[in-house]
Amino acid sequence: MIASQTSPSFKKIRGHLDSIVLPIQYAVDWPIRTVHAMATRLTTQQQLLQDDAQLRAHDLLLQAKLQELLVLERENAQLRELLKSTQRLGGKVLVAQILAVDLNPNLHQMIIDKGVNDHLYIGQPVLDSYGVVGQIVHVGQRVSKVMLATDPKNAIPIQDYRTSTRAIAVGDGVSGKLNLINVPNATDIQVGDLLVASGLALRYPVGYPVGVVENVAHKSDRDFAEISVIPSAHLNQAQQVIIAWPSKTSLAKDVKQELKTQLPQPMSNNAGGVSP
């Protein structure tokens, strides 16, 4: 047990051992998936027509929004050009299925059906279409384990969308929520604020939603505010997740280059007595 907790080489062996129980896991996963597939096939025509009409309306709405977005995107690119910062998203993404298998509920982990064969790596961000799900903590040959954002060991650097205040969101464990740690009482974070990943850890994509502030408590005997956050991602209902490859290397390169050009400047500014 101590070996499995501390030794890194044992983690590799564990990865191979995990494939022993893979048939049992698939034996549970397969019938559930088949039933889901059958349920989707057996929808009535009425239902389909209704869905179609709804989706068409939705599509129209999104098209209209897209027109606005195109303009905004160009404007944004221009502004970023001015600020000399990098593009936010980009890079490869991959859709993975979640195996319909429960692990020990104390662990806040789940299994996805992609592994070394798909070039996943430890620490990779896992998202769904609503927000950050978590990160990969173990990669096997065909399956990987994802640590959810609600795990107490998981921390995400976040930014308040309204005020750009930065903080760190740590999983709460039992309640299925997140907590912001070390936020001074005076900080402007309010109930209902959207929190997005700040990208400071170079791990989660910048600006991807993490959660919404549910409760802010100021206690006079504490130095820091107690802020609880409901995760945006649908952690319990999701069947598919998105695995992202944030363009980490290009970001680091750009940062280095930026530092190189920026470093002499403050000195010359000080010499001239002009502050930007």
Partner: peptide, 16 residues
């Protein structure tokens, strides 16, 4: 040991 692998707990916990 099998139970440990299945539930993803520390290897040897259920075994012990």
């Amino acid at each position: 040991l099998l139970a440990d692998l299945l539930t993803g707990t520390l290897f040897g916990l259920h075994a012990l």
